[in-house]
Computed example of a mutant assay.
Amino acid sequence: MVIQSPTYLVASGDSRLAANQTCWEAQDNLEKALNKTFQSFNHTIKRAHEYDEIKKHGFIDSQRMGMQVFANLPSDNVPLIVAEAVWQYSHHVLAGLTTHKGPILTVANWSGQWPGLVGMLNLNGSLTKANIKYKWLENGTIEHDISHIRSLNQCKQISSEYEEIGKKIAEDLLKNKAIMGVFDEGCMGMYNAIVPDELLHKLGIFKERLSQSALYYEMQNTKDEEARAI
């Protein structure tokens, strides 16, 4: 795939102003290195959103802002880089990436201090779940080593005793059902971490969506002894 110039760049950040300001230097360094690399291949990078002089960072910091950034691209088939040197909220860019028709490349730093890699793994997981491709290749394909994967049928058989316990638990779930409390499902844009309800329902498990504010309220009105007993 031959990539035209310029290549546009977006950077998803945190939703918290202080976090974005603190981490901006690391992001700026990553983008400078990325620019240098692309220039060596005779390509230029253009930011799809500018540095904000008031906020003192250049991150996309809300879902609405991300939608606007993608709407303002010259077209929906331009080559695009999502560059991350920090922890990021995936929903800031996921909406735009779902309809982007051009090639998408995700790039992150490798730092123990600035978790760009962690943020990128979360975004890539969301993209994978949404069936969005995010690799550039001149030709061929990337084949990942999956030799460590085994079929469930090849795994060691469990004892009849444990199998009977499992069957009883499964039968109980299907008959009496179970409620799984979920706090802030998909928070920080983690679309990849959401287990679809229709899959859980087949197992007899149903979600009760809870809020952290409700949890905090109950914590103030519940004695420690009662909480420990539960």
Rank of each mutant, 00 (worst) to 15 (best):
L123K: 09
Q113C: 04
M120G: 03
N77M: 09
V82G: 04
G96V: 01
V118D: 10
V107Y: 04
N122R: 12
V82L: 05
A83C: 02
V107M: 07
P74M: 06
N109G: 10
W87E: 08
T98A: 10
T106L: 01
G102S: 04
I81Q: 08
V107P: 07
T99F: 01
A85F: 07
G119M: 08
Q88K: 10
T106Y: 03
A108N: 02
L117S: 06
V78H: 07
V93K: 11
A95Q: 11
V118I: 14
L94M: 15
Y89Q: 11
L94H: 10
P115Y: 09
L97D: 04
H91S: 14
H91F: 06
P115E: 10
T99A: 11
V86L: 11
M120N: 07
S75G: 09
L117N: 03
I81M: 11
N109E: 07
H91I: 12
Q88F: 00
V118H: 10
Q88T: 08
L73V: 06
G116P: 13
Q113T: 13
H100W: 09
W87F: 15
W114T: 04
V86M: 12
G116Q: 03
A95E: 14
S75H: 03
A83F: 03
N77Y: 12
V86S: 13
A108L: 00
W87I: 01
L80D: 13
G112V: 10
V93Y: 05
W114V: 00
L94K: 09
K101M: 04
V86A: 05
N122F: 00
V86D: 02
L117W: 03
T106M: 09
D76Q: 14
P115I: 06
S111I: 06
H100D: 06
I104W: 01
V82A: 15
Q113R: 14
I81W: 08
N77K: 13
A83V: 02
P103I: 12
L123P: 05
V82N: 01
L121K: 13
A95S: 10
V86E: 06
P103F: 11
L123F: 03
P103E: 14
